[in-house]
Amino acid sequence: MMSNIDTKPIVTLLILDDDQQFASSLADSLAVAINANCYCESDPERAMQAIDNQKIDLLIIDIHLGDRNALTLLNELSTYPDTLALPKIILSSSGSQLSIDDLGSYGVAAIYDKRTYDLADLVHKIQELTDSGD
């Protein structure tokens, strides 16, 4: 059981996913679990603006974004040292077909398959990557 502990620092996350219902539900779960403050975006350009305008600690990215994909964004982010250093987690229905060896150079720290991921594992990874755990 995860609980909302107010003394933990607030982590600011950006969720890039074209399924806004999924993104909103995930944001709610992460707010309850780790007091995360989540921005949800469905297209890469708006995600880029959010990264520029907000102090984002970590990105959660879906690869398939309707008729687009997130690889262009990952490539763009990898060209600037600050955005390359931003921890990124891939959460995609194709997660099991993706390899950290291929995406690690984009600053991707972990890959989860939406069909099988466990929220507790994801929360643990976010805490590990943002030093927001106990």
Partner: peptide, 11 residues
């Protein structure tokens, strides 16, 4: 989405 909603409800 159903899976994620179950996590949300759990929380």
């Amino acid at each position: 989405l159903l899976r994620q909603l179950s996590f949300q409800l759990d929380g």
